[in-house]
């Protein structure tokens, strides 16, 4: 959820998905994980030809199918929801699916996160002090994809910042995150930390900094920061 102070200005999940979708380029092979990232596929601009990979061995996955009477359990997404296969799609077994995740064939993976640090460290599988957590494919995808794109709310449900100077959650992979898409901003991970690329309409860079643990930097000319609009896609 958005920081209470900015709830009215924050993007909703569909708007976030639309922004992430705009990032994906033609001919990319893109892994879609579970949760929020699954909302990205329907928002991909029609002229872009993107091949979606699902960790359970689907290359060329289509959007989730809603409202079917009989679910085909043999064609489910990583999030275990019924999906379609695009024309030209194919299936591989699990070891080959993760070979693809590690061997540089994935142009991007879109993952959710608990925390992302200024140096690109990612935490998304286990709570601090917990005895266990769900890794799923996240460690392989984070370690192997050419671009790790994180899609998450800017703060936790309790209003705590998720963009941090140093991880306080157990890491999933170190130094891997390229870009973070939140409900308030788009940020790039650089050698100097988080660069504020875009902010949601109605907020200032200082507003975003106030709900962010890690120091942010941005170009001082206002026009240098793109404004995220909240219109429906």
């Amino acid at each position: 959820m958005a920081h209470p102070e900015f709830a009215a200005k924050a993007l909703d999940r569909d708007q976030m998905a639309r922004r992430v979708a705009a990032e994906l380029q033609s001919d990319w092979v893109v892994n879609i994980g579970i949760g929020m990232p699954t909302k990205v596929i329907p928002h991909v601009p029609a002229e872009r030809d993107i091949i979606f990979h699902s960790e359970n061995g689907i290359i060329g996955m289509g959007p989730e199918i809603d409202g079917v009477n009989e679910v085909d359990n043999d064609l489910l997404s990583a999030g275990k929801r019924p999906v379609s296969l695009n024309p030209g799609g194919s299936f591989v077994h699990h070891a080959d699916s993760f070979a693809l995740a590690r061997n540089g064939r994935l142009d991007a993976t879109i993952l959710g996160a608990y925390q992302v640090a200024s140096n690109g460290d990612l935490a998304n599988w286990k709570l601090p002090g917990a005895r266990a957590g769900n890794i799923g494919g996240a460690m392989d995808l984070a370690a192997g994809a050419r671009r790790v794109l994180v899609m998450m709310t800017h703060v936790t449900g309790k209003g705590e910042p998720k963009l941090v100077e140093r991880l306080r959650y157990p890491p999933t992979a170190l130094g891997v995150v390229r870009k973070v898409f939140t409900d308030l901003a788009v940020l790039s991970v650089t050698d100097k930390g988080f660069h504020l690329d875009e902010i949601v309409e109605g907020l200032t860079p200082e507003d975003v900094q106030r709900v962010t643990d890690a120091p942010l930097y941005w170009q001082t000319a206002p026009a240098a920061i793109r404004v995220l609009t909240r219109e429906k896609g």
């Binding site: 960790e55 077994h93 699990h94 070891a95 699916s97 993760f98 070979a99 995740a101 590690r102 286990k126 266990a132 957590g133 769900n134 890794i135 799923g136 494919g137 996240a138 460690m139 392989d140 995808l141 370690a143 192997g144 157990p170 890491p171 999933t172 992979a173 170190l174």
Partner: peptide, 30 residues
């Protein structure tokens, strides 16, 4: 708990007569 790709590759290696493999997955983690 085993990362999914590592689980798959450990099984594949087991079926391929290998003793193990080197993976970038999990470096620097628990």
């Amino acid at each position: 708990v085993v990362p999914q790709g590592t689980l798959a590759e450990r099984i594949r290696a087991g079926g391929a007569g290998l003793g193990g493999f080197l993976t970038p997955t999990g470096v620097g983690t628990d």
